[in-house]
Simulated scan of single mutants.
Amino acid sequence: MAAGVPARPDIIKLTGISAVGYHGVLEQERRDGQRFIVDVALHTDIRPAAAGDDLTKTANYAELADQVEAIITGEALQLIETLAERIADHALRTFSVAAVEVTVHKPHAPIQVEFSDVTVSIYREKP
């Protein structure tokens, strides 16, 4: 863990960020798009923000939501694994956090059997 972050960090979670993206291996996915849902958990220390009731000392989750939506709706990618990596990398570079967890849901994946969701989840720490 990063300096100043407790052994068991606090977590700020933002779940269910939903937007239409054009990600997929199939031409129809990249042409027609589909809804993707993203969950993000930021591992950090919220004590400085809480002590002073100061938004500038924590991650602004409204900004995070806007940024994740922009990544979902941005460049078309083949793999949701790549989408998850881009979101995690952005969060680590943008916010003062020790680690991030990202889950990308693709509930309308072109699969021929009945299913409820496809997800890719990753955990990344700051170097």
Rank of each mutant, 00 (worst) to 15 (best):
A51P: 00
A51H: 08
G52V: 07
D53P: 09
D54T: 07
L55T: 11
L55A: 15
L55K: 06
T56W: 01
T56I: 00
K57Y: 01
T58W: 01
A59H: 08
A59Q: 05
A59I: 05
A59N: 05
N60P: 00
N60L: 04
N60A: 07
Y61I: 11
Y61C: 09
A62M: 03
A62P: 01
L64Q: 03
L64P: 01
L64S: 05
L64C: 10
A65T: 13
A65D: 04
D66P: 00
D66V: 07
D66N: 12
Q67F: 03
V68G: 01
E69Y: 03
E69H: 10
A70N: 10
I71R: 02
I72M: 04
T73R: 12
T73F: 01
G74K: 00
G74M: 02
G74F: 04
G74N: 05
E75P: 14
A76Y: 01
A76D: 01
L77S: 07
Q78D: 13
L79V: 10
L79M: 15
L79T: 12
I80Q: 04
I80G: 02
I80V: 15
E81T: 13
E81H: 07
T82S: 15
L83Q: 04
R86S: 04
I87P: 08
A88I: 10
A88C: 09
A88F: 11
A88K: 03
D89F: 01
D89M: 03
H90G: 00
H90Y: 14
H90P: 00
A91K: 02
A91G: 05
L92I: 11
R93Y: 00
R93M: 10
T94A: 14
F95D: 04
F95Y: 15
S96A: 15
V97H: 02
V97P: 02
V97G: 04
V97W: 02
A98L: 04
A99V: 08
A99F: 10
A99N: 08
V100A: 14
E101Y: 03
E101P: 01
E101G: 09
E101R: 13
E101F: 02
V102W: 06
V102C: 11
V102P: 05
V102G: 08
T103G: 11
V104R: 03
V104W: 10
H105F: 07
K106D: 04
K106L: 09
K106S: 06
K106H: 08
P107C: 10
P107H: 11
P107Y: 12
H108P: 00
A109G: 09
P110E: 06
I111Q: 09
I111H: 06
Q112A: 14
Q112V: 12
V113L: 14
V113H: 10
V113C: 06
E114H: 11
F115T: 02
F115V: 06
S116R: 13
D117N: 15
V118I: 15
V118P: 13
V118R: 05
V118T: 12
T119L: 11
T119S: 14
V120W: 14
S121G: 12
